[in-house]
Computed example of a mutant assay.
Amino acid sequence: MSGKEFWMRTFKLSAGAALAMVLVTLGTAHAGVENVGTTGGNFLSLGSGARTLSMGGATLGLGDDVGGAGWNAAALGWVNQSQATLSHAGLQNNSMQEWGAYGGRVGTSKTRWAVTGIYQGDGSFEGRDASGISTGNFSVSSMALGATVAQQFGDMVTLGAGTKMVTEKLGPVSGRGFTCDGGVMIRRGVFGFGIAAQNLFGTMNYGSASFRFPTNYGAGLAYTNAATGLRVAIDANVPYAYHPDVRAGLEWTYKGMAAFRTGYRKELGSPGDPLTGPTFGLGAGYNNMWMDYGYLLSSDGSGEHRLGLRFNFNGHSGPDRDPFDQTETPKESKRVGDPSFIGPPASKPKQH
């Protein structure tokens, strides 16, 4: 297969995948809305990480670090060094979210692992009885601890799976449950494709009452040009208990030292939805540390700030310059001194 045929075939497959994502999402534009209020552990559906959220939350076919594994477990399969990630968010209604992850590669194998933790504090509220009389204040908080494993198959495919223990405290009522994540990613050339399921199976149990988790199914397509530092991603998501959405994001990295990001999220079938809106972000790295900032602007005019830190323990911690292995390979040349030749110089012939 010639180079032109390869790119044409890759383009057609990618265009077909993107079209299928959009059609499926549009066809289910009102699916899941009737299930609003029937799930537990809903804080899990907010997402975390300044880098991903500043790109509109589009990452299912792009993620290549420990942070990306929180969206698609298969993203962990591309991590080649130990990483630690921390994220902080000031949410609406004086709520806050703290998220962290640590993971890496198992020796020189193609297996990766990670442990994660997320905490969300929603402050305190005043309780009232049926007569409107105050019953005192009560606090609301949520937490999840998880573990993820991913395996790389060849140079193009990764599979990942994870489990989470989830707890919630709603004043005097406490809930607990277990749920799972799973995903697959495929990369070929400059294109990537991912499918993920979040909060799959399991129930949150509050005493004698049980509620299923806010399951979400999504697919994403990504494009990466290592030479220019440009990355583009588009995702489509179909949640169990909310409107389907389409997300798009763009990132441009300058010499692996600075990153500029923007994105957009659109909730389908819900005009004026507060989750619809643009996103913006910046990033900067030095040695083994990378800092990220994201701002999410809602359609109602409010906004959220996201901060993130990432540490690599075996190299530069900025966005990988070449996530799709677009490295140059030696070229054959019949002429000594050919400037297009890449590789060590040829040895001089011996004089007889």
Rank of each mutant, 00 (worst) to 15 (best):
F11E: 10
L13Q: 14
G16C: 10
A17V: 08
L19Q: 05
A20W: 10
A20G: 08
L23F: 03
V24D: 09
V24S: 11
H30V: 13
G32T: 05
V33H: 10
N35C: 03
L44S: 13
G56K: 09
G61T: 09
G61D: 10
D65R: 15
G68Y: 02
N72L: 07
L76N: 09
L76I: 10
W78G: 08
N80I: 00
S82Q: 04
S82H: 03
S87K: 03
A89H: 00
S95I: 05
G103P: 04
R105E: 08
T111Q: 13
A114T: 14
F125Q: 03
R128F: 14
R128E: 11
A130M: 10
A130C: 01
T135S: 09
T135Y: 05
S139P: 06
S142G: 06
S142R: 08
S142M: 07
M143W: 12
M143K: 15
G146L: 08
Q151K: 04
D155Q: 05
M156W: 01
V157T: 06
V157W: 06
T158A: 08
G160S: 06
K164D: 07
L170W: 11
G171P: 07
S174G: 15
T179N: 08
C180G: 03
G189N: 04
F191C: 05
A196F: 02
A197E: 02
A197N: 01
Y206R: 14
G207H: 05
S210H: 07
T215L: 08
A219N: 13
G220Y: 07
L221A: 06
T224S: 10
T224I: 11
N225E: 13
T228S: 15
L230T: 14
R231G: 02
V232T: 12
N237H: 09
D245I: 00
L250R: 04
G256K: 08
A258Q: 06
F260H: 09
R261M: 05
R261Y: 11
G263K: 11
G263Y: 13
Y264F: 15
Y264R: 09
K266C: 06
G269K: 15
S270V: 05
L275W: 15
P278N: 05
A284V: 15
N288I: 08
N288T: 11
S299K: 14
D300K: 14
N314L: 03
R321I: 13
P323E: 11
P323L: 13
D325K: 07
Q326P: 06
E328W: 09
P330S: 05
P330T: 04
E332S: 09
S333H: 07
R335D: 01
P344V: 10
P345D: 09
P345K: 14
K348M: 12
